[in-house]
Amino acid sequence: MQSAQPAKPVPASRMARAFKRLRRYPATLFGFAVVGIFFLMAIFGPMVAPYKFSDQKLINKLKPASAEHLFGTDQFGRDIFSRILTGSRDVFSIAGSGTVLAVLLGLTLGLLSGYLGGMADEFLMRLMDVLLSIPPLLLAMIILGTVGPSRLNIVLVVGFLYIPMVSRVVRSVVLDIKTREFVEAAKMRGESNFYILFREILPNVLPPLAVEASMRFSYSIFLVASLGFLGLGVQPPSPDWGMMVSEGRTWFNLAPWVLLYPAGTIALLVVGVAFMSDGLRRMLLPGGVSN
């Protein structure tokens, strides 16, 4: 039954209502704020850092937080705050580019696979199954362990690893949309495949894709940090957060801040992105699409 239902509200209030609902979820607001701050940090951080990330002052080594060194200094007397600021750019650019790569390729494959169907779909999806049968961290480690962890390689690996997840989400949306009557109506009037795919289907893929992308971004940060910790991240002297934590372990009893500040930063960012992605899901997919 439809329709003798009350008149629908006017369009302008749609976003306003979404934000009104958001206010009930402080975690989401927190997420957006954190990601925003880190984003600014990635852009301006290296410029405003009080010290150069590689400046060593051995007499100043392992000093606790002070007005001079906000987060203290490490085993070489380097300013931890400046190193974190500078390192944020790598985290954002590597995890971000990896995510963008995965989203672009996953979108392409998912669209093709879902729209073409048949053998092409079967082949692509079995290929994705194979990639998914290897745990992501394992695959990342053996690839980076052999080709070496340069910035570019890490981006490629992150992008490559998350293609299957993205393309599955896209494919399932395409499969749903392509049987809808408005797509049949488009066929009925003789639209080209190009028009149907990009004008009728794609706009409906974008909201769930945005949610998926934000989730992938959070996993990418997680993965990049873990790789850094295992020594497969961006190599020294660049200040990789994961590597800073790993190195800090040696001084844990003596100077826990060497480890705690970068670890806390990673925690804050990852949690912030996760909360943001959860909020995006609430806003963009109010019906609740689960993975």
Partner: peptide, 9 residues
Amino acid sequence: RLPHELSGG
């Protein structure tokens, strides 16, 4: 208007 702003009829 977008479809969701219309009733079924």
